[in-house]
Design a protein around this nucleic acid. Sequence first.
DNA 1: CTCGATATTGACCCAGCGGACAATATTTAA
DNA 2: TTAAATATTGTCCGCTGGGTCAATATCGAG
Lengths: 186, 186
Amino acid sequence: MRAISDIRRQELRAAAFRVLQREGITGTTLEKVAAEAGASKGIVLHYFHSKAELFQQVMREANLVLRDRVIERLNMARTPRDRLRAVIEGNFEPDLFTSPICQAWLSLCAEVPRDAALARIQRAIHARMHSNLMSGLRPLMPASEAKEKALQISCLIDGIWLRLGLAPESITREQAVAQVTAILPN
Amino acid sequence: MRAISDIRRQELRAAAFRVLQREGITGTTLEKVAAEAGASKGIVLHYFHSKAELFQQVMREANLVLRDRVIERLNMARTPRDRLRAVIEGNFEPDLFTSPICQAWLSLCAEVPRDAALARIQRAIHARMHSNLMSGLRPLMPASEAKEKALQISCLIDGIWLRLGLAPESITREQAVAQVTAILPN
DNA sequence: CTCGATATTGACCCAGCGGACAATATTTAA
DNA sequence: TTAAATATTGTCCGCTGGGTCAATATCGAG
């Protein structure tokens, strides 16, 4: 049975993510993660061989959650414009687009430049975002323009996430969606 | 004479910023900062009463450098559009818009949610950016639209900085300027 | 020159960290 | 039932970090 260890791992990742929201990258320790999960520090290192590996898996999982949300919306999309809307709204899901979550994400981002594995995951995230956007943009404009547009949208989305992380009340989900929608091609 | 202590402080801030670029937030220690400045750890705490205060002053100063660049360009601007261009190009100065600097900035951002002083500085940065943008936008559109536009531009600029921090070769200065210019009002 | 202020060092403290490990409990398979 | 595998704990360790402090050097004003 693989399930039991997978469940435990799952719990620990979730606990780590919660601690990351509360304490940031500098304040997150293995002991706090263990306490949050109601376990001992030893068990964390039993499932994740190092703190770095724990963070990597946390980032991977957070990414999967977001991906699933976007996919769900993409599956209901018919037109290219629907696809763009799906990506945008999926990236601002009310229960994900919250200040604490943005802060946790920001903390992980800050580690990216010094952790090759995190960097790989980050690259995959951007690549998927790019391809999702392209599937909506390509039918609407020349390929080279579409590429630039995709980068622009992607950066704006990230920038808005960053903003919510830095200033909790600075922007609402509706504003966020409107802001990104406003730069879509006519 | 105040000058000598001010010079020392200046050196230490610069050293701290360099270490921050190399090592990120988690890898930056008082000893490394001292070593980078060719001094002892004690002297760092002599001038800055704590690590947190050092970081705050580093962020303040980095912000001042950027501000001066933008101001310089703003002073040469005549039309509202010139003002917008000044802000945009000032935020992507070739020697400031580099991957290591974006990474250092990102590291400081990650601390903002858990450091009230950093948060205040960050708020001031955003406020100035907003007002700079408004001085260019207000003549071009209704006030309420201008406010939204200013937020959008500001988020896009941050998002592009973030992108360069996460992926060193992902975007050039020219691309960055073009991307932001592309969302200006007609 | 002298004295008070300031600059600077290096030694010290100790809390907390990531990680290793041996000991024990629990589960699973045969 | 039993043995192997796995899960879990608590302890231990070495080290590094921020911060304190007393001692010394340097400097600047009178």
